[in-house]
Amino acid sequence: MSFRTSYFVVVVQLLLGLAVLSASIADAQLSESFYAKTCPGGVQAVANVVNAAVRSNRRMAAGLLHLHFHDCFVRGCDASVLLSSVPGNVAEKDAPPNFSLQGMGVIDQAKAALEKTCPGVFSCSDILALAARDAISFIGGPTWKVPLGRRDGLVSFASEANNNLPGENFVHRTLLKVFTRKGFTESEMVVLSGAHTIGNTHCSKVTPRLYSYPSLTGADPYLSSSFVTALKQQCPNTRSIANKLVLLDSSKGGQTFDVNYYVDILNHSAVFKSDDALLYTQTGQDKVKALAKSQSLFFSEFGAAMEKMGRLSVLTGSRGQIRKQCSRVN
């Protein structure tokens, strides 16, 4: 190895080490008691707003969970997904993967409540993290620790959402690349995909699997015939139903956070190709089967993965800001 090459390798390793050290320092600054003195009732105030929203519309739980995920997987958990587009820049929320996001109004309500009692203290990114946990817990799902102290980012780019968020038609290789890039293992990818046990999608995302294949029925032959029949009844092949909503997991009305999503995958009754992709490897198959058999295992591992996700590339200390309104920088 030449001196120049070895020097380059050393520099790269040093930079990677500094990046890891920086992330570790940021993690260390997060704490569940972060607002104990500056906004003592803040965590409960967020829970009150979230619980009221989910009580009024149980499906809001899925919206708040997906909102947190779509935020963290782009620039890290910095609330960049909440920023509105401005002249000259299209923000994340206006990128195609985020067209169907729900729950931003709930985050705004929580932020408004906090600004009345402790103005300029509680970050939008912390509200997002708490809202996801509180919403899932409220509907009987798992809970997890949410260490606080994140600050809000200053920029948001639609192009980054397009490049970092998983798509419904991703094959295993592409899907795994998205997750490993964020530091998750294949096992954690399978666990986090369990979020599809609640929520819905539009018929426009489903109809290609029902009508575009060179088969007798036009449907993806991988899907079970009974599942295809049920989906075709919900999503006829017409433009008028493109925005009609379909449950990602129809068991128990799609209202229960449980392991039925994994049962659906094993029964060839999952909505997305990316759901089927979880079975591509033997390790993926084994994980899906294990989770399908044990709700306690699913809850435990989902909570751990969510806590890990909530630490992705957080801004702490003097980085970023505490937004007064979640949709725009100060």
Rank of each mutant, 00 (worst) to 15 (best):
Q234K: 02
Q234G: 08
C235G: 03
P236F: 00
T238W: 03
R239Q: 11
S240F: 13
A242T: 07
A242E: 01
K244W: 06
K244G: 05
K244H: 13
L245W: 14
L245N: 12
L245S: 15
V246W: 10
V246D: 00
L248N: 04
L248C: 04
L248K: 05
D249M: 02
S250H: 13
S250D: 14
S251T: 09
S251G: 03
S251V: 09
S251W: 00
S251M: 03
S251Q: 03
K252C: 09
G253E: 07
G254A: 10
G254D: 03
G254W: 00
G254P: 06
G254E: 04
G254M: 08
Q255F: 10
Q255G: 08
T256E: 14
F257A: 12
F257E: 00
F257S: 01
D258P: 07
D258Y: 08
D258H: 08
V259L: 09
V259W: 03
V259G: 08
N260S: 11
N260T: 06
N260I: 03
Y261A: 02
Y262D: 09
Y262T: 08
V263F: 02
V263T: 10
V263N: 04
V263C: 03
D264F: 06
D264W: 06
D264R: 15
I265Q: 12
I265W: 14
L266A: 08
N267Y: 05
H268T: 06
S269Q: 11
V271P: 00
V271T: 14
F272H: 15
F272E: 10
F272C: 08
F272S: 07
K273Q: 13
S274I: 12
S274H: 09
D276V: 09
L278E: 01
L278H: 13
L278Y: 11
